[in-house]
């Protein structure tokens, strides 16, 4: 295996995650959003597994398995069931249109490249570009959280943000396993908490449109 191949493949996979983030931004149905999120997590698992291979760090395989099992399978399936059982409204209402959101997302990717690349000029190019992609994924996740009104999409935005963090953590050499496990567990707990919140919100307001909560609090949007 050559150095060039290792670089190209990890570049491809990290770039794939950014692409998946854009796909998340583009969705306007809840179920397709969940499917794209599963794809997002799958690409993450592949990327982490490839990093484990390149860095010869077997514990990263464990991280990859965790990412695959929880984020690509358990969480999307669970969210899917929640949406079905609660009969949640399946349309994602956007705050700004999809087009401007995508344009803004491209600006964010450019920004993260402009930030990371000059800051670490003499670092390992693999880690550096990985970090730039990871930062884009994080920013896109945040953008997702603020550009949708639906609580499910906010959960997904948060999870994709965490995926970006895991990507950044595995891209750097020598990140201890403890950190990754704790990140994985924090995501799981966040998922549980947010899931419970979804139930509660639905019980109270009969909708998961966060705008309903705002109007309940007597706020203008």
């Amino acid at each position: 295996m050559t150095r060039g191949l290792a670089f190209d493949v990890s570049h491809l996979l990290a770039g794939g995650m950014v692409l998946a983030s854009f796909m998340l931004l583009y969705q306007d149905r809840v179920f397709s959003l969940l499917r794209v999120f599963a794809l997002h997590a799958l690409v993450l698992a592949l990327s982490v597994a490839w990093q484990a291979n390149v860095q010869a760090a077997p514990h990263l395989y464990l991280t990859a398995v965790i990412a695959l099992a929880f984020k690509a399978i358990v969480i999307p399936v669970a969210l899917h069931r929640i949406v079905v059982r609660l009969g949640i409204h399946r349309q994602l209402e956007t705050v700004v249109g999809v087009g401007p959101t995508i344009m803004f997302g491209m600006g964010l990717v450019a920004l993260s490249i402009a930030v990371i690349l000059p800051v670490l000029p003499d670092a390992d190019p693999l880690a550096r570009e990985d970090l730039a992609f990871a930062l884009s994924v994080v920013l896109l996740g945040l953008l997702m959280m603020i550009s949708r009104r639906n609580a499910v999409s906010q959960v997904i935005g948060f999870m994709s943000l965490e995926n970006g963090l895991v990507l950044a953590a595995t891209g750097a050499k020598g990140m201890p396993l403890v950190v990754e496990i704790s990140v994985a567990f924090s995501i799981l707990i966040a998922f549980i908490v947010i899931g419970i919140f979804l139930f509660r919100i639905r019980e109270r307001f009969d909708t998961v449109d966060v705008g309903a909560m705002d109007s309940f609090r007597g706020e203008r949007r």
Partner: peptide, 22 residues
């Protein structure tokens, strides 16, 4: 503010700081 606006504030601050850094 609403949750989404708080998140927008955080996001805006983050993007602003990153731009300053860049």
């Amino acid at each position: 503010l609403t949750i989404r606006r708080y998140l927008t504030l955080v996001f805006g601050a983050l993007v602003l700081l990153l731009m300053v850094l860049a």
